[in-house]
Design a protein around this nucleic acid. Sequence first.
DNA 1: GTCTATACAAAGATAGAC
DNA 2: GTCTATCTTTGTATAGAC
Lengths: 216, 216
Amino acid sequence: MSGIESRLAALRWRYTPVMARRNYPKGAAKREEILDVALETVAENGYNAATIRTIADAAGLSKTGVGHHFASKHELLTAVLARRDESGVEATHDAGVDLIFEVIREVLARNAKDTGLTELYIRLAAEATDPQNVAHQFFVDRYERLETFGIAELAELQRAGGVPRDMDLRVLSVLISSVVDGLQLRLLYDSTLDPEPIVDALRELLATAAKAAPHS
Amino acid sequence: MSGIESRLAALRWRYTPVMARRNYPKGAAKREEILDVALETVAENGYNAATIRTIADAAGLSKTGVGHHFASKHELLTAVLARRDESGVEATHDAGVDLIFEVIREVLARNAKDTGLTELYIRLAAEATDPQNVAHQFFVDRYERLETFGIAELAELQRAGGVPRDMDLRVLSVLISSVVDGLQLRLLYDSTLDPEPIVDALRELLATAAKAAPHS
DNA sequence: GTCTATACAAAGATAGAC
DNA sequence: GTCTATCTTTGTATAGAC
């Protein structure tokens, strides 16, 4: 509805796992409960603790009971990530032309605290690198959406003079999302690291360069 | 010896795993052979294929035979990575003030081809995120070395006018290594992606911004 | 449709014989 | 220094109860 909402639309999507079924209220409820438990387990005890056994126990059913709702462990964890993505970009309401940097700031600030979820993201992304992995397509789609969002937002910022005119926005978009990914990995190795100055440095670099050659 | 060599020195180090033993010629030879086989396995069939069983078979001994030389799978794979690091930055002989970007270009170009090794790096880095992991300290040390190298080289580049004067070099160093990490993950999802324009964009951004405010 | 019990396979780690 | 054998923990697949 608001302008911000339509601009954020590219970041939102529905992940529909193979076993997602409709019109089964009881099953759907249990499904959500399993996702809740999985999220909590990952958040509190990390990726290694998120075994099917542990999650099944905490959700009050057997291992195969979980298997009824999710075809595999990776599919379950992908659903957890997808849900997190959906709820991740709400609070950004007062952004202007640099919405993209506001979103990044928010995501990184949150992830610097929730190391368990950051670990889930990094490890799942690393494992789903294999095209055979069930989560592979999820990340491919995700990168595509991020790029669509990035290019659109960077074009806006470019018009406002925050990005050099002759800059290839697709290249810049990949650059920025790589920084975000790399920083998240880095945060897991150094919890004292503050990601904000790093992203700010890039933003200022872009602004300075844009002012340097305004008509090129 | 040469100036380049001493500048690259910060990138070199010896990884000494727990079970590394000295003065056992036969053991050391077998150790090297296992590392060769492991590297080859990862390079050709990817991370998932690099099981202790597979490596042991290819090296002509049993699973526990491998265990005699390496305390765990992660220790073995860390040794493979460490060896790769050592041999990874040799050919850069005609670099000037932007040695750091030459090194990055070379590393990324190689890794874009050797996807198996890139997968090893990304997946091991993701798994060793857990401080309990035997490979954790390896990556902590590695990041520290990269930062030392990065700051030193960026200072040189800054003096030459390739980096803005008021820029925090530690921040910039983390920014750059995050780009490299993030790009490697990205390359595994999109083999058509050329990393060079992305790194070049950052380099040019720095140069343009440096010229914009030369005395600040 | 929802779930349990059982079984199976693969991987990594460990103990002790030679 | 290397092997055989065993153990444990994963995740997954099958059969069937309600």
